[in-house]
Design a protein around this nucleic acid. Structure first.
Lengths: 335, 335
DNA sequence: TTGAAAGCGCTAACAG
DNA sequence: CTGTTAGCGCTTTCAA
């Protein structure tokens, strides 16, 4: 049986309350007493039971994080950022993976909400209303999504897309395809908007290619549609999809970037290592994770609710080998 | 404020004890009473506070999972398997990433041990003794490692390596390099042993190439050493390393599989999509995760400690494009 | 079959 | 500065 606060109290010859104080608010205890307590605690290998503490303080020291798909390296990175920040603040984190199923999100929110101080929803797919309903009575921070006035950390998707499109336009591409991600993805929505705005501003023709799951297979499936569209360049919802494109393009014998230029988004590790290396819009994944934890903890802090807080992080185009000057227009290329 | 058991009791006109029973041991409560309680609970949106329950039952309904690196897709898959099984058993899971730092493992074990019913250590890097010391008084299951009689779930690494080497030998390769993973990795150790045994049995010459971090960069760094070794084929510690090899080999102008055959291990998603697709030893990642949770929960069940339990899952070579018949021996190739 | 009472391990008043 | 008391939300004897 793990030692309790009473064991320590007995060993140190003080009351449990003093032990509690010596450990959580040392300045309220006379140094000699404190020392006795600390020694006893160390000797017995005492660590306070957080559940018991939480019962009375109302704080568990735990955070919850819900992500759509851990096997997407983007989310893996975010998780690492969240972890690091949480650990630095002496918090543990529950992680749940929804497998891109919106309903699972709601279930998991409910399940986790009871046992954490705050919840981070990363790229949630559920409708605004459901999110708002379930999150009403718990501290929730959104990441990669903005819903009403709820606190959130997002990245500047629109600007990233603008950078990508400007880059392609500067290379002479006049017809660019966008391989869309999930309809329920807020990021996808932002990216589409940013792209439309940039296309209108720059006179580039934008071709929207259906919605695809944000996975490798999604890119594989999209590739043929992109080729048929007559576009000379393609921007994918994310890097994983872009890698899928690359794969299928290779199989079709289309050279990248000579036959088609490809741009991804997220800058996952793999994007630098593909053949050719993928041009991509870099998103600060770790930082976003850390920032989200920071925001969440600040909300839990003394002040309580410091009003709606929003953070937006910048994105940056990384140019690599998968984009090049547009090929000379081919007759009937649109067929 | 979330409703407590007393709120429900009042609403249903019964005592808190009855509510507790109606919800956890329904058969001990008369149907009409039970119905009243259930209705009241549902109406108030009552969910028992697990921390409070845990305080008395000694069970939190939480599991802990410690992995070396979430950004390795191998671990991401394992996590998904663990998650799925845990959720099916109505448990939540704390996840911690050690960034391949053995000390962090021990710290995290201590931190998590207090708040979970059981702990899963996936591919732990810490020395046996430390693992044993910290894990002494908590329920721990190891994955991808065997330490004494501690319960564990592993895969048949040695057999996987044998399959890989036999495959290469059948293709005519006589000199095969192995790019080793971390020294502290038990799996790496098993793979080396399996390889040595198979090499001895089949008369293949095995070249051991230094220890490298189990990351893409590790493979990149190893590639030149492999080329200098005069081997016509190489087996990498895992797929991520193998992909690093592929990348650097491409940069060096060495064709795969014609210039060098490459085999990985784990069968992460990316391995099927590389150019050329990677031949690899498939490891049942999800299943292993699920099996580990199953084992852990069985240990927590009624019987308590049903003695040491070990599970070993099979591995299977997946032949893809990255291996081929050995090139004709080149004069002075060993230089 | 149900209720009253005790207590899990801890912290937060309130005295002293 | 330290000890006593009460109680967080829940389950579990023990009686009724």
């Amino acid at each position: 049986m793990a030692p309790t606060i009473r064991d320590v109290a007995r060993a140190a010859g003080v009351s449990p309350a003093t032990v509690s104080r010596a450990l959580s608010m040392p300045e309220l205890v006379r140094p000699p007493t404190r020392a006795r307590v600390e020694t006893a605690a160390r000797r017995l290998g005492y660590h306070p039971n957080r559940a018991a503490r939480g019962l009375i303080t109302g704080r568990t020291g735990n955070l919850g994080l819900i992500v759509p798909d851990l096997s997407n390296p983007f989310f893996a990175s975010v998780v690492k950022g969240v972890q690091a920040a949480a650990r630095a603040a002496d918090h543990s984190v529950f992680i749940a993976d929804t497998d891109e199923v919106a309903d699972a999100e709601i279930d998991l929110m409910r399940a986790l909400a009871k046992q954490v101080d705050g919840l981070i929803l990363c790229s949630p797919r559920a409708p605004d209303a459901e999110l708002a309903a379930v999150g009403a009575d718990s501290t929730v921070v959104l990441m990669n999504r903005r819903v009403g006035e709820r606190p959130s950390v997002i990245v500047d998707n629109a600007d990233g897309m603008r950078q990508a499109l400007d880059h392609l336009a500067a290379l002479g591409h006049e017809r660019v395809a966008y391989v869309a991600g999930p309809r329920t993805s807020w990021s996808n929505d932002q990216r589409e908007r940013g792209l439309r705005a940039a296309a209108a501003a720059g006179g580039t023709e934008l071709v929207h290619v259906g919605h695809f799951p944000p996975q490798f297979e999604g890119g594989v499936a999209a590739a043929d549609l992109v080729l048929a569209s007559g576009a000379t360049a393609v921007i994918a919802y994310n890097d994983v999809v872009a890698l899928g494109l690359l794969s299928r393009l290779g199989a079709r014998g289309v050279g990248v970037p000579d036959g088609l230029s490809v741009v991804g988004c997220d800058d996952i590790g793999m994007s630098a290592m593909s053949q050719p290396a993928l041009t991509t819009v870099s998103v600060p994944k770790r930082s976003a994770g850390r920032a989200t934890v920071g925001l969440l903890l600040s909300m839990l802090g003394p002040g309580g609710e410091p009003g709606p807080v929003h953070r937006e992080l910048p994105t940056q185009l990384i140019v690599r080998g998968s984009t090049a000057v547009a090929p000379a227009p081919t007759k009937g290329s649109s067929r």
